[in-house]
Design a protein around this nucleic acid. Structure first.
Lengths: 213, 213
DNA sequence: AGCTTTTTTGAACGCTGTTCACGATGCGCG
DNA sequence: CGCGCATCGTGAACAGCGTTCAAAAAAGCT
């Protein structure tokens, strides 16, 4: 046999990611993968349960890479002795923006994929990879000098992540292409500034109830 | 003929929305629509260019309804004499959350649909409907007593919208179902609180450059 | 009524994901 | 070496999808 089984799987994943990145979810076809990988259609189903399994595996790799990108950005700032909270948060957001730009097709495909599955699959391993990102943000907030209890800090970290995520995805759904980048950068800058200032003021944020006051 | 052409279109759209809402994008099938509408497959293509056209039309209706939901929430607060910025923003966010909950399948389908199309279609009419929402938020901000120039206010409105959007979509991608609602409410409450406090502090937000300071 | 125009139809085409009987291929053992 | 066995790769076959288009039906017109 020419290819180790695991090596064949890697090949399929690499091809699948390229296909997703170039043409979105619609471009992930079993026959195309088989042809480009030099194997038969059936072998693809031997390596993975189905195409969704392939897509899931690609998504895992993407999330892992996003995690290391975030960690690398923090490590870089640490190496340069930068501890300013705003700069650190901006660096994290910048890492995310750059990651999305570097994966123009496969990242939207990941988002669309999650949307298609109701809640059937156990997202344990999925959420675990996201928690890793939340941890990074939470640790930056912990070093920021705001006196937040652990629970608030956790929620703040997730809020910050979700907001940046929303800005980026909304931004790339918009019309033009060059104006997008400016818009996104401005919105992220404003979000981070406002967020830090808002947290610095201290006080409670437990207005959990709806507008029934 | 039993059905006016326009009436038939409405019927198709209603059926399509139900299908999308119940089973997501994969559930929007030409043959199912035709069968449920009591027409033939070909007639569907007579009324709409293709299935994407049907989906687009459904999305337009959804965006319109979201717009009126937001406007209605503001009108309701106005009627009750409530002018507090926090309460108004929370009401807007709440309207959005309720809207998403009321459209568990068709709203994710709208998001996934936008993601699939690069930028080919002229999103004029699409963006116009979103601008209507931004206008509502911007007007609330304008009444809030922050001294923001018009441009900053516009960006802040979009940032707020994108952030809420990100919180909601990230929240529903998470695992459990009952914890989701609490998480989302808490994140939105924190976002709105922090945002208002951050804006109240005044000052400039023009840190447009990346972290190259 | 006949003729023309418009609309509706559903069989047909090409493509999709997925399966599975079959043949090839590697392997241990007498 | 030969032979049974198990493992794996294969691609034709199946069901279903979006989309088309010649033909039929309906509607309009004089």
């Amino acid at each position: 046999m020419a290819l180790d089984k695991e090596e064949a799987g890697e090949r399929v994943l690499a091809i699948a990611e390229t296909l997703l990145n170039e043409g979105g979810m619609d471009n992930l076809k079993a026959r195309t993968i088989a042809e480009q990988a030099g194997i038969s259609v059936g072998s693809v189903y031997n390596l993975f349960s189905d195409l969704d399994g392939v897509h899931r595996a690609v998504n895992m790799r993407l999330l892992d890479r996003l995690g290391v990108a975030g960690a690398a950005a923090m490590a870089d700032l640490g190496r340069r002795g930068i501890t300013d909270v705003r700069q650190r948060l901006m660096a994290l957001a910048g890492a995310y923006v750059r990651f999305v730009e570097a994966h123009p097709g496969s990242w939207p495909a990941l988002l669309a994929f999650n949307r298609r599955r109701p809640v059937l699959t156990e997202p344990d391993v999925y959420e675990a990879r996201l928690d890793q990102l939340f941890e990074i943000i939470a640790s930056v907030l912990a070093d920021g000098g705001f006196d937040l209890d652990e629970d608030t800090r956790r929620i703040a970290a997730r809020t910050l992540w979700s907001s940046v995520h929303g800005i980026v995805t909304s931004g790339y759904a918009a019309r033009s292409v060059r104006r997008q980048a400016d818009e996104i950068d401005q919105q992220i800058a404003l979000l981070v500034c406002v967020f830090i200032r808002g947290l610095e003021r201290g006080g409670t944020f437990a207005h959990a109830g709806k507008t029934t006051s």
